[in-house]
Nucleic acid binder design. Structure first.
Lengths: 209, 209
DNA sequence: CGACTCAACTTAACACTGTTAAGTTTCGGA
DNA sequence: TCCGAAACTTAACAGTGTTAAGTTGAGTCG
């Protein structure tokens, strides 16, 4: 228990100190505002100190939004309780939408910015629906397929999930990138999200007879 | 006749020289590669010379993708010939998709990057379906509504257009941002686009009886 | 206890970026 | 011929991410 562990703990503390400062700047003022020097200012260290804890800016930002992937999966808590797969799918889509609108800066980094193929050391456990948002979505789609709620030609859960995802992503990302665009007479954001889920689900389901 | 016009013509020539050099860099290596100094190198001028023709980098890039909006609208040439509004809508969606996949760097700038509200001096004539891609889409949706091809509750052409757009944008932008992501077992890009148009249209149309 | 080690940090610098101030060339018009 | 302005260049500024070299201070060991 000597000072060996104390050092390690202190190291972890300053690590999260940096992480928190960066996140705060980031969520408030966006990617552009996050400069190494501004982070350093905020925690009253020199800019170089950060490099002792993170390889570079990219991995720092990466680490920030890594935690957000977990956060996203937890937004599906309400949806997870729904038994009917179709209703569950709808609620999941809307929860995803709300997440994106609430944290646009995180969303941009997570889903709208191409990243170099970074190492696969993530916090979230891949495939676990409680941590992996995509796995959660896929599990719903699989359930819907198993219960024969979709059109008979829709047998690939992966493909359907990706389309469902893309639809909601389209609404969110178009909003983030174009909400100040005056070219288009935008309809209500909520309405657009609603119409997207409804239309997609309506287009996917097997219409009873 | 006089050198008055020659000067003006020369000025226009170097303007497009810059524009072409910038576009070339941009389409080949992406936004990050476009630095004022690299553009200047390529046309053998000093970096400062560019500022004599463009206010700043932002407006330069803006001007480049302004021309691309026109280009996009012209991709709908084939779709424009289709009489049936539903088929026309599908083909338009796929043409949009192909454009995004073919010119990802342009697409990123046009639709995935938030811009400060820049002046409304565009090349394209707003509302003209032959130049304004959104207007083209909306005209199809209006036609479909008029011909009662959509569900009776769908009366707002703007809202439906925006949803249709968002759907295809979702497929394209997710591809551009995440095509190197190994987290997801991506299905074929073409298949995803196809399923998106089909599902959306299927979810919108009035199902005959 | 004193010497040594090494992690944690700082200062100074490098190579970039977009952008501008100031100076130079060039050339048509009076 | 001289003037003025347009078109350009050189040099610089303030900023960026990042690194090389030096400093400090606490833990280890003879």
């Amino acid at each position: 228990m000597g000072p060996r562990e104390r050092r390690e703990r202190e190291r972890e503390e300053i690590r999260t100190l940096i992480l928190d400062a960066a996140r705060e700047l980031f969520v408030a003022e966006g990617y552009e505002a996050v400069t190494m020097r501004r982070i350093a200012d905020r925690i009253e260290y020199s800019p170089t100190a950060i490099y002792f804890h993170f390889r570079d800016k990219e991995t720092l930002l990466h680490e920030i939004c890594d935690a957000d992937f977990l956060e996203l999966a937890q937004q599906f808590g309400d949806a997870a309780k729904i038994a009917d797969p179709i209703e569950k799918l709808k609620e999941t889509g809307l929860a995803y939408f709300r997440f994106g609108v609430e944290f646009p800066n995180h969303y941009r980094l997570m889903f709208m910015t191409p990243h170099p193929p970074l190492g696969d050391d993530h916090d979230v456990e891949k495939g676990n629906p409680e941590e992996d948002a995509y796995a959660f979505l896929k599990s719903i789609v699989e359930q819907a397929i198993k219960e024969k709620r979709f059109r008979p030609d829709l047998t690939d859960a992966e493909l359907v999930s990706q389309t469902m995802w893309a639809g909601m992503h389209g609404v969110v990302s178009l909003h983030i990138a174009k909400c100040n665009d005056t070219w288009v007479e935008w309809r209500g954001l909520e309405d657009r999200a609603r119409l997207m889920v409804d239309t997609l689900v309506n287009g996917l389901v097997r219409h009873g007879r």
